[in-house]
Amino acid sequence: MEIAKNNQDGCFTLSPSGDVDLSVARSLQMEIRAAMETKPVRMIVDLEKVPYMDSSGVATLVEAMQIARKQNTTLVLCCMQDKVRSIFEIARLDRIFTIVPTTEDAAGA
């Protein structure tokens, strides 16, 4: 899986590409942990290029949320595709995460 990174003005954006399942969730977890260690004011996970996510990926993002809360980083998920949103809705996590439609929204959420 490719994960594009952009760290600018206290805003760290991670943009993974491809399905996030058990085979790659660990890679995303490592990238998120490394990004969080920089203590960004805002962490954006851009999911535009993620067509599928299973509970392994969701667990990674739940961990990110827990880290973010501890260190007062604002975590925002954006550009979520319908199939990915579906698992968040099934797990009722759509009301726990800040999920916005666009990267522009994420920058201001």
């Binding site: 667990a59 990674t60 739940v62 827990q66």
Partner: peptide, 18 residues
């Protein structure tokens, strides 16, 4: 418990749900 927000443990809940 779905209200217990933590990483992991969602798989069986999802299977039962869908």
């Amino acid at each position: 418990d779905i209200e217990d927000i933590k990483p992991g443990g969602l798989g069986v809940y999802i299977i039962r749900n869908v």
